[in-house]
Design a binder for these strands. Structure first.
Lengths: 210, 210, 210, 210
DNA sequence: TATGAATGAGGATTCATTCAT
DNA sequence: AATGAATGAATCCTCATTCAT
């Protein structure tokens, strides 16, 4: 079980976690090599299987680990900000900060989303579903929806905005591939998109560009 | 070569193609088992390698096969329709029709897009690049962009619409997972989204829900 | 059986024989590909197995074929020449002539001698033994052994000469590898070796260099 | 690498080495079956590939192994012996002793010399070239060539003697095939050949049969 | 008689997992 | 608790041989 793994020194634990995240992120579940992990982590073959009974258990542990990191995003957000677009920008920035801190975790998660291995797909999908639902729930907390035009279906409008944000994020990710160089440019471009959306979906008095 | 495969009876060819599409869609390139394919297709171990010299060649053949199916979409579209949203609906419907005819091909393509295997990634990326460029080119052919508001950046606006369409399609796919039962409902829902977008992005005189 | 093969047109027979000789010479028994043979010969897969029940039978047929070619060597020699060294030179020259006519047969034979495949080794060894014994028997026919010194064991002396000839031939083969460019030089060098041997093993009155 | 293999118990290492030598000697590089080796050695399928990454590496290891055995021959010879024939006899005897100790190694080497597999041919040829050059160099070390007649080309004379020795060795090997029973007889026969050669090639004062 | 598609045993190699130390 | 050698099922692929046409 994990009790044995938990009792390890923090440094060793991190070494193992990072080695495993990296390997799974690079190669996907099935192709990831336990040999690669133990080599990178500098531990013995048997040890890995002492800590985690098998590959799947290790993968699921990591899935749980990154979930906690994602939770960090939400715990850091300023839930008093009531403007929908400002909240989105804020969360985007925090995501980015955390990415710089735990890059492997993000690469792992990115890979997990498109993971095809039947052995773990179910768990990943459940996690994603959960993440999305609680994410939306928390993401919409304290938002002042009264700024939106009342002649448009609010649910649909927020969907359009979310899809736009998602599409934009995807586009940026494809463009940079490693989040190293992105900063102000990306934010500026998002600002422009935000303004278009605001002008369309907000009541006229809230359309100011600030 | 494929000459031997081409000479097979249509029924057998389809059995093999579908078995392979299914296996690759489920497991990805590397983990897909040729054993699984021949078992599902009901052919002998060696036969598959008579038809295709190796796994990669088989995969590339399938990639070509689905490309042709995608081309079918465009060849069936009415390129005289100048309204952006009507064109999108039309292509969406055709896509859907073809999906019902070749469901595995779509799952295969979906998987291919996020395929990580280095052995075939180059080919996939080339194909995608080609698909996107000719796709956009053809997709925007004859569109009357003068209907759009001139005070908004047209490029960004079309991006928002495309992301919305993509996000909506994804949502529907996740919802139904097998496209068996969806029809009018989906179209109605898209119509509603379309109307919101039209009201926001078209000049006022074109916002009629026609 | 071979009756079916025998009834083939000469041209086709030769095409098949040469293709097979070439393939076996290049790749050895086990690694030789029946596919390679039928492709080179321009016949159908099944045909080869109509003519010869299996790979081994084909190989054995070729072994027999080249044996007949070797017999040609002896049938062409001038058996009235009684000088041991002149006879050797003569046979060497004839060998060389025939090599130029049937190069594949020689390459095949060369490869056969060092063939390791257990499936055919027995037959090859029997053939070689037979070739050597009848070869020696015929090679020594009509030779005037009275020219040799009587104080040396004749059997041993002829052995030494044969080993020298063999060693020399081997050396030349390694040097040229394809018998294309060898001619006078080789003969001259052999002449020199012959003279040394003559001076040692012939009675003094026969040591003249011609 | 070989570190894992090196750490094995001597008995197991020898079992594997001998099994592999035997298989490669019998079947040649390409046709040699790793299955055959592991079966003969009594180890698991995967183990062989733990010790040696692949077939080629195993083969190259064996090539190195037999080279060391050959070096043993030279390290045991008495390099103060200046008589050419005595030196040859001596090395011949040592070779024979070692053959009795490592029969498979000799069969392996014999096969290697005529190995056709392109995958290992380069390495074999390099080894042979090295073996021959250092072999000749060491073999002729301290030899008193002044014993030879000066009216004969020394280079050619030594060649004749070497070819004779080689031919004789080959003859003996073919005769006994397992070297179990040969001893004094062979030496006696070689002595007789030596005497003939000495009487022909040495200056008269050194022809004593001692 | 000639064909070539179909077969399947066998090839080398990989890798998660076990277990004696 | 930690180790790493041993395992063997599963991987893709080859090829001599068969057999229906």
């Amino acid at each position: 079980m994990n009790s044995q793994f938990d009792n390890l020194k923090t440094e060793k634990k991190e070494r193992i976690i990072n080695a495993a995240l990296k390997e799974f992120a690079q190669s996907g579940y099935e192709k990831a090599s336990t040999n690669g992990i133990i080599k990178e982590a500098g531990i013995a073959k048997g040890s890995l299987f002492n800590y985690f009974n098998n590959k799947k258990e290790l993968y699921l542990f990591l899935l749980d680990y990154v979930t906690k990191i994602i939770d960090e995003i939400y715990s850091k957000a300023d839930w008093n900000e009531t403007d929908f677009f400002k909240r989105m920008s804020q969360i985007g920035c925090i995501k980015f900060e955390i990415y710089k801190k735990y890059p492997q975790a993000f690469d792992f998660m990115k890979r997990a989303v498109s993971e095809g291995a039947t052995e773990v797909r179910t768990e990943i999908e459940a996690l994603i579903k959960n993440l999305i639902s609680t994410g939306l729930e928390r993401g919409y907390q304290n938002i002042d929806f009264s700024k939106f035009r009342t002649d448009l279906d609010l649910e649909k409008v927020t969907k359009i905005i979310n899809w736009t944000a998602l599409g934009f994020a995807e586009e940026q990710r494809d463009k940079v591939n490693s989040f190293q160089d992105v900063t102000a440019d990306v934010l500026d471009e998002w600002e422009e998109l935000s303004n278009i959306l605001k002008r369309c979906f907000y009541k006229q008095e809230y359309c100011g560009d600030d």
